[in-house]
């Protein structure tokens, strides 16, 4: 994924290294200086043809201008979401691309939709839920995760979170264990016959 804020900082750095102003770039690309400002603050991306023009002006490469090879840097955890693009941050943290920050650190600052997006990324990629995340999730999110475990084969370490489960959550687990025991008993009976 692309980090729009990081790209914005790179665009500023490249422009300043050539001693150009935002107006100079705007004139060369036939865009407004507000558009250049939005690119440099990571609010939007230039169009592909403007990217190609910028690569020529700054005498650089696609990899450099899009910061493709740059590692994810976590400075102050508190300001991580301000320093990086939100979608990018959620993606990288949910997929554990950094050890400096976990989803449990991020979750309280996310919207309901962002939190569910993060959980979906985790379950799809079989990223385990740790016991620091579980208490920070809402009941809806926890039930959803348990259903992913029950129906979709998501690996959840039940023993680690068992002591935090509500009666409704415990019921889901009991049903699964009961069903498993029944299946084992049936297959044993078949084998003895």
């Amino acid at each position: 994924m692309l980090d729009l804020k990081l790209i914005g900082r790179k665009l500023t750095e490249l422009r300043q290294s050539q001693e150009l102003t935002q107006d100079d770039i705007a004139d060369k690309l036939y865009v407004t200086h507000q558009a250049v400002s939005r690119w440099e603050t990571g609010k939007t991306l230039p169009t592909i043809d403007n990217f190609l023009m910028l690569i020529k002006i700054y005498k650089t490469s696609i990899e450099d201008i899009l910061c493709l090879d740059e590692p994810l840097v976590v400075g102050d955890k508190e300001f991580f979401l301000d320093e990086h693009d939100r979608a990018f941050s959620i993606h990288e943290v949910a997929l554990r691309r950094t050890k400096a920050l976990t989803l449990a650190d991020l979750v309280p600052k996310l919207t309901t939709e962002e939190r569910l997006y993060a959980l979906r990324l985790m379950t799809q990629n079989q990223i385990p839920t740790d016991d620091t995340l579980w208490p920070r999730l809402s009941l809806t999110e926890r039930i959803w995760l348990l259903r992913q475990w029950r129906d979709k084969g998501y690996t959840l370490d039940i023993e680690k979170i068992r002591y935090m489960l509500t009666p409704a959550e415990t019921k889901i687990i009991r049903e699964v264990y009961h069903e498993n025991r029944k299946n084992v008993a049936i297959s044993r009976q078949r084998r003895t016959k």
Partner: peptide, 10 residues
């Protein structure tokens, strides 16, 4: 939909 909207996810 524009290509630029798709870019961040690729």
């Amino acid at each position: 939909l524009s290509l630029e909207e798709l870019l961040p996810f690729l």
